[in-house]
Nucleic acid binder design. Sequence first.
DNA 1: TTGAGAAATGAGAATCATTTTCACATTATA
DNA 2: TATAATGTGAAAATGATTCTCATTTCTCAA
Lengths: 138, 138
Amino acid sequence: MPYTTKQQQAILACLERKQGQPLSAADLAAELRQDGSPVGLATIYRQLERLESTGCIHKINTEQGSYFQYCTHAEDGAGCLLLKCEGCGRIVHLDCSYLQPLYEHLEQEHHFTVDRRRTLFTGLCADCRAREERHASE
Amino acid sequence: MPYTTKQQQAILACLERKQGQPLSAADLAAELRQDGSPVGLATIYRQLERLESTGCIHKINTEQGSYFQYCTHAEDGAGCLLLKCEGCGRIVHLDCSYLQPLYEHLEQEHHFTVDRRRTLFTGLCADCRAREERHASE
DNA sequence: TTGAGAAATGAGAATCATTTTCACATTATA
DNA sequence: TATAATGTGAAAATGATTCTCATTTCTCAA
């Protein structure tokens, strides 16, 4: 029977504290070290995998590796999405009701159940778009 | 001044031939080897990067690495999306008009321009969902 | 044509996130 | 307490991607 270790608690607590902010395994390691409760990377990956499989957190894949986020509610993510800017690398988290009809359509017409907590759009934020345009006009 | 090499042509031709089917760099290498025109992996990555920056192809990030797809038209992707099944790993490509209002909303309200060719939803296809349910009920 | 210089190529080394291994520590339960 | 199960972390292994550099291929002006 599994039991709870202080590493597990520290990892989950850290993710909760940073809610809405995607963290990489390395980010987590750094955070935990700062908090005075360092945890080995192997353990961090193991725990992240476990937390993900139980639905406590969700994983987002990007070019530079994976990021993890705490899920507040069971139904969290129903209309939530992430935007990743290709310019500055930032990941922004927001809610949007426009996703609902799309998900329903995919479910009914294409028999595909979207994992709503892992939706990630790639593109450009306003700042980076402006920078690109300036660049192009030179 | 850049010139065209047979490796470049072979890579692009292969991507065109496999349209709608995302290929990894390794897939491409295997294809090209079979075609009798083997190309080094370093070159494949270099060319994929170039083709992506010119907009000829687009890149999709997954847990297992990146995949690349040929873009038919400049405006391709306006309503196209990719579904990646977490169960079987398949990537399905389809068109869907439900994306349009969402993109417009993100553009106007959140000042975020989505790169429409890189939209990827993660979830479960019908087959894998059925399998999961069978599993859970045991 | 020729040859200097610009680009491209590919084998292998380097990198970096992630996973695995394994000896050891911790906890549960008999 | 003894013992089996599980968790931990350092170090090694893995695998995708990138870098290095010697070599090849092209371009273009003389």
